[in-house]
Amino acid sequence: MPAQRLNDARAALAQAEKQWKGSVACSVDTESRVIAHVFGDIPLSRNISIGGFAPIGLHEVICGHDMGAASVLAWQLAQIGSGKPDGKPVHRSVFWIRQRRAIDQGGFYHLALPETPVTRPRPLMLTVDHQVTALWAGEEIAKSGQIASVILETTDYDLTAARRMQLACEAGGTRMIVLRRALPHAGRLMPSSALTRWKIEPALGTQQNMTGNIHYLSLIGGRGVRPGSWKVKADATTLSLSVVDPLEDRLSQNQSIYT
C-alpha cells in the first residue's frame, strides 16, 4: 500500500512537472492575486490538482444561453497568464479572437470591465468571418510565445482542433481560453483536450426569487480535475465571484424595482 501511494505521488509530481516545465508564464504572486480576485472564496484547491491553474495550455469556458458571464469569466481567466516570466511588471497582450455569428450574442465591450487590482494588459481584438481563419489565428498566436493569453470565441470545434491548440499553447507558453456554446454531442459534450473546462449559467429566476447576478459555476472536467459546482454571486462592480450560501437577494438598497 505505501508503495502504491508513492507511485501515485510520483505520477502526480510528474504530471505537475510536465505542465510547468521550464515556462512559467507569470509570477506566482500576480497569479494568486488574480485568482483571489476572480474566484474569491471558492475552494478551488479541492478540485484542481497539483500545479493549480496551469498558466500554459487550453482551457474552455462553456456558456449556455447567456454569454455575458462567460465572457467575463474568460477574460478573468486570461488575466492569470498576463505577467512576464521574470516577474517584471510589464504585461503581455491578450488576444481576443471572435468569429462573427459564432455565438450570436454581440461583441465584447471592453468599457464594461472594471479596473482590477492587477494592471491588466490591453486586449487586441481580432474579428474574422470564418472558423478556419479563427483557428489558424489562434494557433499562430498561441505558438508565437509573444502573447500571454488568447481568448478564442468560435463555433463548436472538434477534438483535433483542440489538440492542435493545446500543442500550440505548450510550444509557445501561452494560455488559451476557448469560449464555446454548450452544444450536446450524442448526449454529451464534445470531447476536448482542455486542461480545465468551465461552465457558467445564470440561475433561473422567479417572481419570488429574483436573480440576475447569481450563476451556477461548474468545473466540469479536464486533466487532473475533480468536477465541482458552485452557486456564485457576481459582484456588479468588480465582476468577481463569491459563493452564495445561503442565496442572497441581488438587490441593493439603492436600486429601484419596476415589475
Binding site: 471592453h110 487586441l124 481584438m125 481580432l126 474574422v128 508565437s144
Partner: peptide, 18 residues
Amino acid sequence: LIDRINHHLGPNDILYHS
C-alpha cells in the same frame, strides 16, 4: 506576429485595439 496575422486575414477580417 501582427504582420503575419494581417497578411492572412480576409477582406472583412479586422485586427484592432479598442
